[in-house]
């Protein structure tokens, strides 16, 4: 514990670095994946291709990706941009499937009712489909958040400052408390992010609490996403989630 107490300042500043590296990929990944997921859902032929590409992107291990990105982007190897871009790629890879599944899970009857009432396609997307996709999108976003926060530390291997520094430095100096404090701080960030997302869901999606269908779809997606989301792992193909008729059961 002595080490921790003597180095609270360091832990805090590394935590801030860690957060600064984790937030942009989560937000960018969400924004970028909306149009891609929409295309995947809207044009059936594109779905397989887009989801395969995003699945393969997610298969690329993180350390090699951080190493290869400078060669592709022309950035310096120590540039934090590499980590942000790399994590954004993972976030998009995870999120595209969530968006496509979430939109597919919107009840066809509701969509038709919206059309029948005279929503234009644009209005229908933003006022009906997107909000109704909310619970599943949020579930996907929670998985992206956890995965991103835990992956940031890999960046420290190529010298980008984050809580991962505590792991490497702790290894070199043989200080177990230092490594442990890094793990605990990472977990805390993940928990705080998750709570913030859940809170955002409560505020933005008040109806989801009342709607058993939405609840079920949400739960299902969280679990499937948990089965699939992993650092450099692949996304499990759960037919129950990719199937709109099932998700509405």
């Amino acid at each position: 514990m002595n080490w921790v107490i003597n180095n609270l300042g360091l832990i805090w500043s590394l935590t801030l670095d860690h957060v600064a590296l984790a937030v942009p990929p989560i937000i960018l990944g969400f924004i970028i994946s909306i149009p891609i997921g929409w295309v995947a859902n809207r044009f059936h032929a594109s779905r397989g291709v887009l989801l395969t590409i995003s699945g393969l992107l997610y298969t690329v291990p993180s350390l090699p990706l951080f190493i290869a990105l400078p060669a592709i982007l022309g950035t310096g190897i120590l540039d934090p941009i590499n980590v942000v871009v790399g994590l954004t790629i993972y976030a998009v890879a995870l999120m595209v499937r969530s968006v496509a599944d979430a939109l597919a899970a919107v009840d066809a009857g509701v969509r038709q009712a919206a059309t029948a009432m005279g929503y234009s396609a644009w209005q229908r997307f933003w006022r009906v489909e997107f909000p109704l996709a909310g619970p599943v999108l949020l579930a996907g976003l929670r998985v992206v958040s956890v995965s991103t926060v835990s992956l940031v530390s890999i960046g420290s291997v190529i010298g980008v400052s984050s809580l991962g520094y505590l792991f490497l430095n702790g290894l070199q100096r043989n200080i177990i408390e230092e490594v442990a404090s890094g793990i605990v701080a990472t977990l805390l960030i993940a928990v705080v992010f998750d709570l913030l997302l859940v809170l955002a869901g409560r505020v933005l999606l008040p109806w989801a609490k009342a709607d058993p269908t939405a609840k079920r779809a949400w739960r299902k997606t969280v679990e499937t996403a948990i089965a699939g989301a992993s650092a450099g792992g692949s996304v499990v193909d759960d037919p129950a989630v990719s199937d709109p008729s099932m998700a509405g059961r």
């Binding site: 009840d107 009857g109 509701v110 038709q112 009712a113 919206a114 059309t115 029948a116 009432m117 005279g118 929503y119 234009s120 009906v128 909000p131 109704l132 909310g134 999606l205 109806w207 989801a208 709607d211 269908t213 939405a214």
Partner: peptide, 21 residues
């Protein structure tokens, strides 16, 4: 779209928007 707004439509399972009161 205009046409649909001028015609009422009621369907099976009501087709209500679940996220609206």
């Amino acid at each position: 779209v205009k046409l649909r707004r001028s015609i009422g439509y009621v369907m099976q399972n009501s087709g209500l928007l679940p996220h609206r009161k």
